[in-house]
Design a protein around this nucleic acid. Structure first.
Lengths: 210, 210
DNA sequence: CCATGAATTGATAGTAACTATCAAAAACTA
DNA sequence: TAGTTTTTGATAGTTACTATCAATTCATGG
């Protein structure tokens, strides 16, 4: 639901990994930094919180902070949903029309998220939509998602991913994704995101009747 | 075709303004800063060019630079197309369906741009799509455009601007706008932007058939 | 268990984009 | 021409981020 991914993906419930002490420590440090950062952001606001403060709260040096998160923004916006979504798309029956497949994929992808993860995502997204720098970053991250979607849709439709039709499709999808995201936050998560998304994609399929 | 606007809008051919010496000087300074900045960006790249260099080339102090452009990004991304587009939408017959009205509005808005302005816009857009920081900024600027469009569309359709249908419409439009922008740049402006946009909006109207 | 190599960390120093402030200079006004 | 307002430049910060290197911590083969 946001921006770039890091090289080593976040462990998803599915993959059981053998963790050396080193790996475990790194994972813990990363988690601590992120938790402390989000706490401080909630307490004092994003802009008013310095990286130095975060580092101190997480008991690491600023250098280490930047080793884990290339920018302050990344503490909030980094996630790993793209590969999950991609997998969900690939899992759809190949004869489904692209938009329909996409709707189904979003649904299954979101259903795999536990309620506590949804809560965390809502909180992060709330922050992301309210701070301009984060909003820019999250939107920028959508370009990667678009690229991924374009590939998946083109593959499915047997078209060039650079064709205007594919581009229009994917652009429109990204647009409604963003719009749904904002509605979701605005409603404080009342309507589940997948439902909002599904509705919006429904409008798309119908040619945006108004 | 990009991001935020400044308080005092750029003079468009249409409005003849009485300019005091002060106004003229300010306009000239602004123009010089922007020209020198774009020149330096083209010569050395965006990131490699410092504000200090721009200020020196434009023969002003760095302080003055920041008075005219709040961020380095704004030198590239600032423009004033929103009000023009809004006007063009309002000028459409009220019985036209929203998407159709929008297509027509884009067409007329772009036709009002001279070829040399189109060239400058292409150059700026090219830069904006290639530098991540600028891309983020330009996309962020689209939120303002979205808000504007949502208002105009809601008004036209007699609906709440926060309704899911309006949001989906506007989000989708922004998405295809972005997609068209990228195609435009990628093709080096070969196909005129209004044509690309018109095509893309056509796909939208047809329910994105693929 | 220990020595050697590799990965991780923290300290230091530096760059560059911005912000705030204030006095000097320029332009407007009467 | 004198007084007022606007614009400017200089100065001194702050903060995100980069590069580098020595010290520390973990891994591993003997």
């Amino acid at each position: 639901m946001s921006s770039p991914q890091r090289a080593d993906r976040a462990p998803h419930p599915s993959d059981r990994v053998v963790t050396s002490l080193r790996e475990r420590k790194k994972a813990k440090t990363r988690r601590t930094i992120q938790e402390e950062a989000l706490r401080l952001f909630a307490e004092q606001g994003y802009d008013a919180t310095t990286v130095e403060q975060i580092a101190e709260a997480a008991e690491v040096s600023p250098s280490t902070f930047f080793r884990y998160f290339p920018t302050k923004e990344d503490v909030v916006t980094q996630d790993d949903y793209d590969p999950i979504l991609l997998e969900a798309i690939r899992a759809q029956p190949p004869d489904l029309p692209p938009l329909t497949a996409l709707r189904a994929a979003f649904r299954t992808a979101f259903e795999s998220m536990g309620p506590e993860e949804l809560d965390r995502t809502l909180a992060r997204t709330k922050l992301s939509t309210s701070v301009p720098a984060l909003r820019a970053r999250i939107t920028e991250g959508l370009f990667a998602t678009i690229e991924m979607l374009a590939g998946a849709m083109a593959e499915r439709a047997g078209r060039d991913r650079r064709s205007p039709a594919v581009r229009a499709l994917v652009g429109a999808v990204m647009g409604v994704m963003l719009a749904s995201l904002f509605t979701w936050v605005e409603q404080n998560g009342r309507t589940p995101l997948p439902v909002l998304l599904d509705e919006a994609l429904g409008y798309l399929e119908a040619g945006l009747p108004i």
